[in-house]
Design a protein around this nucleic acid. Structure first.
Lengths: 207, 207
DNA sequence: ACTTACAAACAGACTGATTGGTTTTTTTGA
DNA sequence: TCAAAAAAACCAATCAGTCTGTTTGTAAGT
């Protein structure tokens, strides 16, 4: 239009796709799946609807691609936190607080919740997302088992403790939609840390 | 149409409303909020769209009324389970298994999840539902504190233990959407019971 | 170097279906 | 006789997907 910044086709494509996926995640996060239309995404991304359908012919293709990227981003973020715990930049308490912060205020949790709930009523979407979630979960388990060791593996393994913690976070985040009460969630998080502490400890401190 | 069973206006109204609310909850449960239309609800209820808009002029009025009833039903169901635990018809293990069964296969959890997620992107709906959820939660706390006592209230109170358990259930149910793995959830439930057992016990056995 | 041919990228109008809500008409009970 | 209840037609808005036309980059041929 104004200055013709010359780019290769690949560069143009990649940029457009990036804008679309980012806009998709942000819209899911901010207004929910029900209020996320393909036209809205295109507008938010600053891309024409034609460009959008060119790269992602259906809404599902767009959602699935956005989910893939979002899961990847979150796992990476978690890897960083785990590394921080391992090398001493974070202690046990701060680690969980950072994860909770990430869940509550990061891009990922609520957009994934929207997608999961949408998938409940859409067989095809569910089938497309299922492998992505399983992948993500395996990445979680790998990160976690490299970071925490169980005190009594016969009673509660490290893996189960991870899943318990994850599910508490999930549940809390859902509850937070209709109940904004920071003190309540702080108390809950403290209780979770206390209960977990008697079953797992950071691998680093076990050396 | 066929046989004119003579009923009072109140009876006709009450029956129509009952059919509509029941159909609403069932549709939310089975196909999700996104696929729940007012026309679909009316059809499923076997009621004309005119009758539906007569009793519930907007979709929100219908959703809110259905939520109210559903929450009431679930709290009642939980009261029965708690009473069974108190009078010895259920033991500690069986109680939690019954609650989990209720969450996973009952009418209420997934329909409430749909509604909560929908409320996230709809300010008015959120404001209407907020008091209902708080009511329900207070009922939970009352039931729970009459049923369980904390072993070390200074560390973890009975109330916090309840909320932790509730949130684990919530999280597990969300996870169950994309991960159907009964063994996994059994293991998770066992871990939850183990962890809870060291902080609360049934009030009855404490007498 | 410079055109030319072509395909990918992009833009935007259009379409059929569905939605929630309104209005009009008919039926039923008081 | 009248108002509540119920039925059904109707409407504007929105949606995902399709279609047609334009722009931009690429590569072959000269």
């Amino acid at each position: 239009m104004t200055v013709a910044t010359r780019r290769t086709q690949d560069q143009r494509s990649a940029e457009t796709r990036r804008l679309l996926l980012s806009a998709t995640v942000k819209m899911l996060m901010e207004v929910g799946y029900a209020n996320t239309s393909t036209a809205g995404i295109a507008k938010r991304a600053g891309v024409s609807r034609g460009a959008q359908t060119h790269h992602y012919p259906s809404k599902m293709a767009l959602i699935v691609a956005a989910t893939e990227e979002m899961f990847g981003n979150f796992a990476s973020r978690l890897e960083v936190l785990a590394a921080d715990l391992n090398n001493g930049d974070l202690d046990y308490d701060k680690f969980f607080e950072a994860v909770w912060e990430e869940v509550l205020h990061g891009d990922w949790f609520y957009s994934s919740l929207e997608i999961i709930v949408a998938a409940r009523g859409d067989t095809e979407l569910r089938e497309q997302l299922s492998p992505l979630i399983i992948d993500l979960h395996q990445r979680f388990e790998r990160i976690w088992t490299e970071t925490f060791v169980a005190l009594n593996p016969d009673v509660i393994t490290s893996k189960v403790a991870l899943n318990l913690a994850l599910n508490v976070f999930r549940g809390m985040a859902v509850q937070a939609v209709l109940r904004r009460d920071e003190a309540y969630f702080r108390e809950m998080l403290m209780a979770l840390k206390t209960m977990l502490a008697s079953h797992v400890q950071p691998a680093k401190s076990a050396q």
